[in-house]
Design a protein around this nucleic acid. Structure first.
Length: 574
DNA sequence: GCCGTTTTCGGCCCGACTGTTTTCAGTCG
């Protein structure tokens, strides 16, 4: 049984949860959580690193002890320490810890005083009024617990970035209209373009007399006010999306934006550096003693600790601070760098718009080229193209190209990679196209070895251009199929082909860590919309965000190239 | 449990809000 980084991280998280309930040293607990995050964010499997003889203690936050535990988990799937912990403390208590309002101290009291170790028992005790009599608890706490349990029953998972964007942008324009308000910006994981966000963190600068907080809690989408103070408030919208707002003075804007953007581990690392320099960094500024030395802008915060500005998408404490210090930060790709889109559909298959409408929409965005890549015949649900229908579309593209100025349509296909690794259309036909985007749309459950071999074989096809949505995952809905991404990326380099970041909000695939891996291995990535209608080119911003999270620069992205260069790259003559 | 231009012990980021207290602990972000 292979043990993946997510498995190792899960073991460490569980250890941290149980230690927390036991009341262990908080810094020890933090060490486990930190290790879980470091392992989860690795671009290589720890198991492979061990097989290669790598020294895991070179990873940040991993010392002798944790390295040994990683070895143990890789070999056995678990570790002795976790088993012992589970014997002492019922793992079901972790469920209670996840309830908002319940932390380790309260869970411990509930367990020891009332012998509660399940959500069900907790709900019953709350209904019976047995909780309010415990020391440190009261009626409100009891009611809150019951409420939390009920909320969790109908809980929504994290929100996809594009969905959160809709709620966030509407709320921002509402808040901007409030008197006395200056800046309104959505910070948090949203600003870092994380593929999903747990809540929205909105930062506002306003003068003291602004009625911002009252306006905020009276926003018509607000279903529940969870907390409300003078500088901070939390609400839940009808969509169940939680929104935090924080109001600061103008001179603290940069410090607050930095603080509120996170990530948490990035902020901790920055504050540590400040601390070593005798500075205190909080959301109000950077201070030496009582004196504010920076904080008006984010740049000033970084400058105070001797660093250049770090883009939000990089702030995950995955090496960006070290890179900043060494002046090796990437100059991240921007939406405006894209010269075209290499993956789009029309009415001919499962798209909504005509060829001409798609071309005109792309042209209106200033694109130099657009590849039309319909599904192939195997994907019957999408009315995939047969060779005859593809030939007809190729003729139509020729006619359109002759009559339209300023944009070039490329003849392409999103061809199915069949179970045996062959492509779903005849070779000679594929050879007549400008671009062949290939994708796995079936047999997701093959073994790792077979799935990897299937994709590698497809890449061996002489006309293969781009591997579309390379891991096949759908965010929060379908796990990636099991395949060896490092081998696939290295094979792409050998074969002169490319990988896609599919910008569709449900995909965002490649994932950031694999985009970074592709960059490190020297494989260009295409940022494609996979548009099924003319307005879906808007989604490219999310693909660019994912690319930026993967440290990609303009030069790492295939479709930043002018058409002539693109054609040469596709033809493998460059 | 990790880590080190105050190195092998003693630190480890920082502040707001809530509820239960009667001056503050717990929780959260």
């Amino acid at each position: 049984m292979a043990v993946y980084n997510t498995d190792i991280a899960a073991v460490f998280e569980e250890i941290a949860d149980l230690l927390e309930i036991e009341g262990a040293n908080p810094f020890r607990i933090r060490a486990y959580r930190n290790a879980a995050r470091v392992i989860r964010d690795l671009s290589r499997e720890a198991g492979d690193m061990i097989a290669d003889g790598a020294d895991l203690t070179e990873l940040p936050g991993i010392g002798e002890d944790l390295a040994a535990k990683i070895h143990e988990i890789v070999h056995s799937g678990t570790c002795v320490m976790l088993r012992k912990l589970k014997k002492r403390t019922p793992p079901a208590l972790i469920e209670l810890l996840k309830l908002p309002g319940l932390g380790p101290k309260k869970v411990k009291v509930l367990y020891h005083e009332l012998d509660i170790h399940s959500l069900e028992q907790l709900a019953r005790a709350a209904r019976d009024g047995r909780i309010r009599s415990l020391h440190g608890f009261g009626e409100k706490t009891e009611a809150k617990i019951l409420h939390s349990i009920e909320m969790q029953a109908g809980a929504t998972a994290r929100f996809k970035l594009a969905v959160a964007a809709q709620y966030g942008e509407r709320l921002v324009s509402y808040l901007k209209a409030v008197p006395g308000v200056d800046h309104v910006v959505v910070a948090g994981s949203f600003r870092r373009y994380k593929e999903t966000v747990g809540d929205l963190d909105i930062l506002v600068t306003a003068n003291r007399t602004s009625p911002i907080m009252d306006h905020f809690v009276n926003y018509d989408e607000v279903a529940e006010v969870i907390a409300k103070g003078t500088t901070r408030a939390t609400v839940r919208l009808r969509s169940k999306l939680q929104v935090d707002i924080r109001v600061v003075a103008k001179q603290a804007y940069g410090a607050a934006l930095h603080y509120f953007t996170g990530s948490k581990s990035h902020n901790i690392a920055i504050r540590k550096i400040g601390q070593e320099m005798g500075l205190k960094i909080n959301e109000y500024g950077v201070f030496r003693g009582k004196q504010r030395v920076a904080g008006q802008t984010e740049e000033s915060v970084y400058a105070a600790v001797g660093l250049p500005y770090i883009e939000p998408e990089l702030r995950e404490n995955r090496g960006e601070i070290e890179a900043a210090r060494a002046h090796r930060l990437p100059r991240l790709v921007e939406l405006a760098d894209l010269r075209g889109d290499l993956h789009a559909h029309t009415q001919a298959t499962d798209g909504r718009n005509t060829l001409r409408e798609m071309a005109e929409a792309a042209q209106a965005r200033g694109f130099e080229y657009l590849a039309i890549t319909e599904h192939s015949r195997h994907l019957t649900v999408a009315h995939g193209l047969t060779p005859q229908r593809l030939l007809a579309q190729m003729d139509e593209i020729d006619r359109l190209n002759a009559g339209i100025k300023g944009i070039t349509l490329l003849k392409g296909i999103e061809v199915d990679i069949l179970e045996d690794g062959t492509l779903d259309l005849p070779d000679d036909l594929l050879g007549r196209l400008d671009i062949v985007v290939a994708a796995v749309h079936s047999h997701f459950d093959l073994s790792r070895a077979r799935q990897t071999a299937r994709i590698l074989k497809a890449m061996d096809h002489p006309h293969f251009s781009i591997l579309a949505h390379p891991t096949g995952r759908l965010i929060e809905e379908r796990a990636p199929y099991d395949a060896d991404m490092l081998r696939i990326i290295r094979h792409a380099r050998e074969r002169g082909c490319f990988l896609e970041i599919n910008a569709h909000p449900e995909r965002l695939d490649l994932l950031d860590i694999y985009a970074q891996m592709a960059k490190e291995e020297g494989v260009l990535v295409a940022i494609n919309s996979d548009a099924h209608s003319a307005n879906q080119f808007d989604n490219l911003r999310f693909g660019v965000g994912q690319a930026r999270r993967g440290w990609l620069e303009k030069s790492d992205v295939l479709n930043t190239r002018p058409l002539k260069e693109l054609r040469a790259l596709l033809a493998r003559t460059l």
